[in-house]
């Protein structure tokens, strides 16, 4: 499971959802996801310990 980047960012997203009257508006932080993937590509041990949910056999 991945969490949203921070409480502050969640506040911003909540404000936007309210402003647009779209409470179900999905939010994906592509920048953070790319950064996370770069980390996993750099360090083999971390990739094994923290597989992406799509690659995690335990999920």
């Amino acid at each position: 499971m991945f969490y949203a980047p921070s409480a502050l960012a969640q506040d911003d997203i909540a404000a936007l959802q309210e402003c647009l009257c779209l409470p179900e508006l999905p939010y994906v932080d592509f920048s953070l996801e790319a950064e996370r993937q770069a980390v996993l590509d750099s360090w083999p041990l971390l990739r094994e310990l923290y597989p992406h949910p799509a690659e995690d056999p335990s999920l």
Binding site: M1, F2, P5, S6, A7, L32, R36, V39, Y50
Partner: peptide, 16 residues
């Protein structure tokens, strides 16, 4: 760098 990277992963995995 590796400490920053691990912290980023933990922020995602452990959240609050």
């Amino acid at each position: 760098r590796v400490q920053r990277d691990i912290r980023l992963l933990w922020q995602s995995r452990l959240g609050p």
